[in-house]
Write a protein that binds this DNA or RNA. Sequence first.
DNA 1: TTTTTTATTAATCATTTGTTTAATTCATCT
DNA 2: AGATGAATTAAACAAATGATTAATAAAAAA
Lengths: 205, 205
Amino acid sequence: MNIDTVKYSDTEIKIKDAAKYLFLKKGFSATTTREIAKESNINLALLNYYFTSKRKLFEIIMLETLHGFFSKMVEVYNDEKTTLEEKLKLTSSKYIDMMIAEPHLPTFVVNELKNNPSSFLKILKGKMIMKSKLVDQYNDGVKKGIYKKMEPIHFVTNILSLIVFPFISSPIIIKIEKLGKNDFIEIMNERKKLIPKWIIQMIKK
Amino acid sequence: MNIDTVKYSDTEIKIKDAAKYLFLKKGFSATTTREIAKESNINLALLNYYFTSKRKLFEIIMLETLHGFFSKMVEVYNDEKTTLEEKLKLTSSKYIDMMIAEPHLPTFVVNELKNNPSSFLKILKGKMIMKSKLVDQYNDGVKKGIYKKMEPIHFVTNILSLIVFPFISSPIIIKIEKLGKNDFIEIMNERKKLIPKWIIQMIKK
DNA sequence: TTTTTTATTAATCATTTGTTTAATTCATCT
DNA sequence: AGATGAATTAAACAAATGATTAATAAAAAA
């Protein structure tokens, strides 16, 4: 059964939405089943009726969330039509939008991959970032002598670092700079254009 | 009372060490007082005898850990004697060493600042990163026309992103690249030299 | 040594938490 | 309308958990 084609009833969706909200915000252990029931306005027993256990419910949400997070990336990275530079712009833009919309997403992803790294394998089967079109294009550029040579792992890591880390450390940034929420969002929107430039400067000869 | 000058008995140290290990690895909610007691080989009641409550114990460890994490950074950033480039090398080197030694540190810091952003203020009083010598030196370089103009917040964020994020996402990197623990450490050690170069390329005209 | 304070222990308490049960309501089909 | 199965509910259960108590052991003070 594909992860995208599973159908859920209204009640199940209510439970899942509330659970996702709480799990992303507070993590698995800090979230209680009674909280989920209250947040979704359902009876406590329905959680187990539909999802068997808190752990199972969590696993479903985790897999869906990770899947959404990574499939977007792979889409962009493997697009045959776009140039390397366009890919950088698209990833920055898409990811920054995604994380503005769901601020708790990056820390959740990071925590889950730490607690359960193998769940990552279920998600990423066949989605080889290191063999993506993006990496091919970078390697081509190196061969042509327009890009500096660098281990692709560094190349990919740097892109993600510049995009994701500011969101993970947003509480620090907001405190240090005494920002409002909208100020922060504005700064992140600036980065959509800046990150591609920075990456290019890092690799261009 | 200064955070560095507090004295603890042997038993208290045993409890704190075990608690730090578990809190950093699993977080507050997922760690039980009985686990801490077992890990430190002390009687369960001693935890409350010495530290009043699990929450209090956690707060002490959190403050100490955050303090250690940030004070190292501020030391380097405010050094009057070193150049900007040297500061970049030193931060990279120190931080990467620190995180190799304590792999759970970065995610812990990130989670705590998310759950309790104001604890950050207690730690960082007077330690103004944005008014550090490092930022001064960068601004000077801009005035002299050797560096491109960029909001200092981006400049500082980018440095930390490139240093810290790979550790936060280490489970992904290890899985994707099929690395052993030592392979990962080696790649991170490479970055000690690379990150300063990348940052310079980002800002140099 | 005797007394007093401090440290340690096993047992227990009171809540919280995940889960289940059994009864009831609701919807669907004949 | 009546029967059948699914959905929902309130109540309860059992285990886990943070915290406390009261007794004992160890250390320090007298």
